[in-house]
Design a protein around this nucleic acid. Structure first.
Length: 295
DNA sequence: CCATGTCAAGGTCAC
DNA sequence: GTGACCTTGACATGG
């Protein structure tokens, strides 16, 4: 099992997700920002290696506005060697990488324009991973999307659009159960219809489910991952005490995490820890995993 | 320098 | 039909 955290490291004093306002866009600013972001990304990955954290989610802001019409800069070419070097570091150290575009990426929107912009954004994500030389085990996770007053039709649109994507995108995409609209069962249905692997989010599952236990849910999700997809990824988080249901915790609930691991320990998984204090909780979690002989 | 408003992008739900 | 809320950190502006 590998363990990781998303996008941001608060210990090392740099940010790999720096961006700027669209109104102040310039090519110089883009180059400066991406230079910073890639440099910091590399530093974070080195930190992760030092602490046995072999899973990391790259920020969608690595190349700001990459899929926006304003950006006609060939950043893949310009940053070819930096991207390649980071890719070599990742592969050489047997690290796992994911990305997770924001919630307005909607393959199943009835609005064709929204879908087209979403696809452009997915293309950017895949282009970044491609430029690093990462294989199809580096995943881009999305949600199923909206319901639009007709769930069946919305699922149909998702499947149709997924099938129309070119294989370079399809090989990286996975669909994640969310906490309000599409449960694990809904995602498994989508998988049956088009084959997209299902990324299990344990916290969303706690918010929205059909009474499946963690281990049975995990088994179902894991069975949707094929050979080229690598070890199944999952998202783990826990509830912030006293807050609205579905609010991600500030810090790791160690007892909950240990119980969760005990329940899914029969599976080989890579776990993304979606806790607000990022690497701090990851460092606590890796201790637990080692205690249980899982890392 | 600090505080507060704002930011490319949508959807849902309450009223 | 309109507006609040979701959720998020960091940019940007104004005092």
């Amino acid at each position: 099992m590998k363990l990781g955290y998303p996008c941001i490291n608060r210990s090392i004093g740099c940010a790999a997700n720096r961006k700027f306002r669209l109104a102040s866009y310039s090519e110089d600013k883009l180059v400066d920002t991406v230079t910073n972001n890639l440099d910091c990304m590399h530093k974070i990955l080195k930190y992760n290696l030092d602490y046995d954290l072999f899973f990391f989610r790259l920020s969608s802001d690595t190349v700001p506005f990459a899929s926006h019409p304003i950006c006609d800069f060939d950043w893949v070419d310009h940053f070819r060697s930096e991207l390649h070097e980071i890719g070599r570091f990742i592969i050489g150290n047997d690290m796992r990488i994911s990305m997770h575009p924001d919630q307005f990426i909607l393959l199943n929107s009835p609005d064709e324009g929204i879908t087209q912009r979403s696809i452009a954004e997915l293309e950017y994500h895949c282009k970044l991973l491609d430029a690093m030389g990462l294989d199809s085990t580096a995943k881009v996770q999305i949600h199923a999307g909206g319901v639009y007053k007709d769930r069946e039709l919305a699922v149909e649109r998702f499947v149709e659009r997924y099938e129309s994507l070119d294989s370079g995108l399809r090989k990286r995409l996975v669909v994640e159960n969310d906490d309000r609209l599409y449960s694990l069962r809904d995602c498994l249905l989508i998988n049956e219809l088009c084959g997209i692997p299902v990324l299990f989010d344990s916290f969303h599952h706690e918010c929205l489910n059909n009474r499946e236990s963690f281990s049975s849910a995990m088994g179902d999700a894991a069975s949707t991952w094929g050979k080229g997809d690598g070890v199944p990824m999952i998202d783990y988080s826990n509830q912030q005490p006293g807050a609205r249901k579905g609010k991600h915790a500030t810090s790791l609930d160690i007892g909950h995490f240990r119980d969760f691991l005990e329940e899914v320990r029969e599976f080989d998984l890579d776990i993304m820890l979606e806790i607000k204090d990022k690497e701090k909780s990851a460092l606590e979690a890796i201790v637990i995993m080692k205690e249980l002989g899982l890392a």
